[in-house]
Design a protein around this nucleic acid. Structure first.
Lengths: 219, 219
DNA sequence: ACTGCTCAGTTGACAGCGTTAGGTTAACGC
DNA sequence: GCGTTAACCTAACGCTGTCAACTGAGCAGT
């Protein structure tokens, strides 16, 4: 099979496919840039198309609609986040692993505010965002599942206080503690009403506070 | 001065003003209903006008634009939140007061998801949301200021661990811990990806976790 | 070499959006 | 009555996301 079709069997048809994927990627790149620059809502299909010298309708040959385009970018970002987290998966102590995951997660949020916003700060509308694409419980793709697994490991080892029984509940508690800070900072960083402290310093404190408040005996 | 203009001096002009405010209130009511029903973005000026049998342009005699209309509703909700929180301001122990404030805050969020969303989950765009209307540091109007004051009181009494020095930082930490849970639940409650625990139970745990993790000696 | 098909991309349009210039009309002070 | 004010309407503007219909290049089969 391999031998029969050595390097480039269907030379021309393969090139057509490659070219189609190339323009698809150009659309994604342009959309990402504009989303980051101006926000998702303020970015129009016409603007995306203009940036790569196409007509707006050309985008519809690659994506069903604007939402599908956004979803594709989300999917890519979910994978990026998960693979960033899985890299620190080697640490044996679950608590320390959670601590490091928290810091990496926050770093991702602060460095990619636009992606973070449409990953976690907008309704996943009708179609559940991840269901279709990300493989659940595969740590390489499902960051939330990875956190739940780590929490579960800590629960089994008896590292947490007795009132914590459900790994999902504790995972959600830890996750949302960080999410609150990240999302508030993204949404309200420019608001002079609140005198924002350095968010990365606050994140470090928050991770420690939550771990100290949830683990069994406090040093 | 008062004597010269007894009960209703400009009887007719007063009625005109009253009528104008009445339609203004009808616009606000209709807008709030539609925002809650369908979300802010999906609600059009035309739909708001239709609900009270006006043309869309009539709204522009009462509000500069759609954003000003949203802002007005936000302002009203900020006051409602603050006055809900200030009612529990009598509790002498700052830590217990923070605990109760947290629960009341979360309750407000769960009960008013639509308002919560455009109070805390969207960019305050150009005009800083509260600056113009809410009186800073008046607990009746400024819920954040009220929290900062309470935290400051706790700091002065030495109730918190030594690494906490800045009342703003600690207030932001506590606030965002709850905000994360509330906002995630509002944005992603329908997402089957995550098996959500009962949010109110998780909130209770989260408040305790954060207080236990930040106060001086843990019982 | 001709025919016919596929399909990435374009043209031109649609309905709906927020918003506005200008007109109408009722109620006001004089 | 008269002129003024202002709440409300009519008609339109430019913009959006989206789509039906078309174009034209490159492919397969004969």
């Amino acid at each position: 099979m391999c031998a029969l079709t050595p390097p480039a069997p269907a030379g021309s048809v393969a090139r057509r496919i490659r070219q189609k994927e190339a323009t698809r990627d150009r659309i994604l790149d342009a959309a990402r840039e504009l989303f980051v620059e101006n926000g998702v809502e303020a970015t129009t299909m016409r603007a995306i198309a203009a940036r790569i010298d196409y007509t707006p309708t050309a985008i519809y040959h690659h994506f069903r609609d604007k939402e599908a385009l956004i979803e594709e970018l989300c999917y890519l970002d979910f994978r990026a986040l998960a693979s960033a987290l899985v890299q620190i998966g080697e640490i044996p102590d679950p608590l320390e692993r959670i601590r490091r995951m928290g810091l990496a997660y926050a770093e991702f949020g602060f460095n990619n505010p636009s992606q973070y916003k449409f990953m976690f700060m907008t309704q996943s509308s009708h179609v559940p965002l991840e269901k279709a694409r990300v493989e659940k419980n595969n740590p390489e793709q499902d960051a939330y599942g990875f956190l739940v697994q780590t929490v579960e490991e800590g629960l089994k080892k008896g590292l947490f206080r007795p009132e914590f029984q459900d790994e999902h509940q504790l995972a959600q508690l830890l996750w949302s503690g960080l999410h609150g800070l990240i999302s508030l900072h993204i949404a309200k960083a420019d608001d002079p009403w609140i005198e924002w402290s350095d968010p990365r310093a606050t994140i470090k404190l928050a991770v420690d506070v939550m771990l100290r408040g949830s683990r069994r005996q406090g040093p």
